[in-house]
Structures are given as C-alpha cells and as structure tokens.
Simulated assay, not measured.
Amino acid sequence: MSAPHPALARAQDFCARYGLRLPILLAPMAGACPPSLSIAVAEAGGLGACGALLMPPAAILAWAAEVRAGTRGPFQLNLWIPDPPPRRDPEHEARLRGFLGGFGPAVPPEAGDAAPPDFAAQCEAFLEAAPPIVSSVMGLYPPEFVARLKHRGIAWWANVSTVAEALAAEAAGADAVVVQGAEAGGHRGCFEAGSAEAGMVGTMALVPAVADAVRIPVVATGGIAEARGAAAALLLGASAVQIGTGFLRSPEARLSPAWAEGLARARPEDTRVARVFSGRAGRSLATAYVAAATAPDAPAPAPYPVQRALTQAMREAATREGDLARMQAWAGQAAGFARAEPAGRVVAEIWEGMRALLR
C-alpha cells in the first residue's frame, strides 16, 4: 500500500494529537454555535466549538455539559481577549441612536453602557469546564492563564491574522495557530482592532507564509466551505481546516431562515467588511442596513463594544421579524458553498472530496 500524501499524513498526525478522526473543525462563532451543531460535527469525527464571548460562566458550563451529554468527541472553547476601555462620545452616540432608530426600535441613551461578561470569570469557567482545547482571538491570553491551562493539560490555540501575530503566539506558548484569512465571515481576529481593514491578507497567501514561519501546527480558516478549499489549505501547509459559514445552513445550526437563505444566494462579492454592527471589523452579507450605515453621510460606528450595544435592539427585532435587511448576517466569501444538509453529512462530503483530491 502506498504511503498517504504528505498533506494527509500531516493531518493524520494532528488528528492523533487531538483525538479527532478527521481534520475538519467547527469555527467557534459567538452566538451561532448551539450545542447541537458541535455534537453533530464531533460525532462525524471533527471538532466541536463554542464562541463564548457573550456567555456568562454558568452558560459556558451548561454548554459544555450539554455537548458532553451528546458526544464523546472533543471540542474547543473560545474567548476574545478584551479591548482597552472604549473612548465614549455622548454627542456622537446620540447621532448614532437617531440613525439606528430608523432601522428598529428607539435606542435609549443608556443602551451603549452594556458591557461584555467578565473576562476573568469566563476564564475560570473555561478551567472548570476543562475542554481539551481552549482558543483565543483578538490577542493572546495572559501568561498566567496560559500556565494554568498547560498545568491542566489543556491545549491553547491562538487565532491569528498575520505572520507577525503567529510568531508572537508561538513565542507565548500557543500549541497551534488558527490562521484566519480575510475571506472569513464574522469578525476579523486582529490583535490591534484598528488595523483590521489594513491587514486583510487572504488565506491563499497567509497559510503558507505562516506554515513556513512557525514550528507549531497551522489550522486554516477563512473562505473554506467545500473540499477544494480544504484540500488546498492542506497543500499550503495546514494540518486541519476550520469552517464556520459552511456549517450555518445545516439544520443543527438553528439559524434564522432568512439568514440561511441569504447565504445560499451569496456570491463572494455579496459580502462586506464593516464595523457597523459591533464596532469591530466583521464580514457580513452586504444588506440594506450595511449599505446605509457605510454611506458617506452615515454617522461613523462607535467603538466596540458600544456599537454592538447600540445595535442590539435593531438586530434582535430583525431576527424576530425575519428581516435580512437589518440582520447581523455574518458570512464568509465562500457562503454560497454552504449546503442545507446535516452537519455530519457536510463533514463527510468535505472529507471524501479532500481525500479524492489528495490521492
């Protein structure tokens, strides 16, 4: 029997290290990772994931317990590294509230005061949940938390968007880097919030550059939703692929039907990176709200997390009403490849396609 393709051999080594059958990972998408989706991906041989940014400790522990009740497969828990406190501008926020009121319910003056859950408490919940893998985005975990992870045998993967960030993550003790190309849906995982748009490097260029620069495994993410992209990522030096948008049309994702239908129609040019939902740069479908909020005469977004708090009422109303025009419809540039099939079938089809292409 001939030896496996070197790219597949590298992926097999990675899978053996992390208890996976297949090198296909669910992306940890905050607000879009119900336990049902992770259970389905893990049962198919991949890795489940939870983007815990918006979750208090009790919710994190409940999520982990529900996933463990549904599968013996592994999963990762992910957190954003907090930004410095935002600079507030009451007059500008008043203009934003007036603008946003045209797209949804009136926004009260105190809306922008909402803050994310306590980061330190979330970290403690991660240690208590004790997943096999904890990942970071928007920066690096503090050294003392990394040491506690290592002491408990929990691997740390760092999401990076440049070669420089990958080198910094490796130096800080990361066990792997998740290399996010600019094609990715949702937020750009840049260490410096202000540089997200200027540093938009595509997956095709970024993955091999990082693979050549670091000694730790590389996971490729961004613009990968089918077998061709996944096989290409392995050929470029990745040990596994992480997929977000490609799973969102699966029934286990429990996505709003309007959002799911928007993904099905999307071409790569139908997405846009903007700060108009959260104050952080993120790629979504180019909806009517995105177009209006990025127009020259629109008020500039407030910093994160103020903008997210100000848009919350609009986003919630859009979801209730099934109105894609105002919805926070995150979408990567490969959204059109997402299929309305069970997540386990999506995993299997991508893997079989990868194997055929890498024979």
Rank of each mutant, 00 (worst) to 15 (best):
I39S: 08
L149S: 07
M327L: 15
A292V: 10
R272L: 13
P56T: 10
H92Y: 06
I24T: 07
V218R: 03
P342E: 07
A220H: 10
L100T: 02
W259T: 02
V207C: 07
G262I: 09
L8V: 10
V346Y: 01
I154H: 11
E165Y: 00
G185C: 06
N78D: 08
N78S: 07
W156D: 04
E352M: 12
L248E: 11
A166I: 06
V346T: 15
A121P: 08
P257A: 08
I154M: 13
A295T: 11
A129Y: 10
G279L: 00
T71A: 05
G70L: 05
L61F: 07
A274H: 01
H92Q: 11
G282E: 00
I350T: 11
A176C: 07
G51I: 03
A65L: 08
A211H: 12
A171H: 12
G189A: 03
R320L: 11
E192A: 15
I350N: 06
A264T: 05
M204S: 10
E321N: 14
R308W: 06
L310D: 02
E261C: 07
P143A: 13
A176I: 02
Q122P: 14
G48H: 09
E261G: 05
G237T: 03
C123T: 14
I350G: 09
A232P: 09
A42T: 11
L248I: 05
P268D: 06
G31R: 04
Q76C: 14
I224N: 05
G353Q: 11
A125K: 12
G181K: 04
A171Q: 15
G185W: 00
I243C: 07
E261F: 03
E349R: 15
T245V: 11
R272E: 11
D212M: 15
M1G: 14
R97D: 03
A291P: 02
A125V: 08
P142S: 12
M138N: 01
S135L: 12
G112N: 04
P6W: 08
E124R: 15
P132M: 13
D212I: 09
F191A: 00
A111V: 05
A111W: 03
L20T: 09
L358M: 10
D89H: 11
S38I: 03
A198S: 10
L149F: 09
G223W: 02
P299K: 08
A130E: 15
T319M: 10
G202S: 12
D113W: 07
A340T: 02
A253S: 12
E66T: 08
Q333S: 05
A168C: 08
E226W: 14
M138F: 02
E170L: 04
F14D: 09
R188K: 01
L20K: 12
I154G: 04
R315F: 02
I24D: 07
R280W: 00
V346A: 11
P131L: 14
I81T: 14
A58I: 04
I350H: 05
H5K: 12
D323E: 12
E124W: 14
R215H: 14
G173L: 12
G202F: 01
L358Y: 08
I24M: 12
R95N: 01
R320M: 08
V214N: 13
R320Y: 03
C123Q: 15
R21V: 02
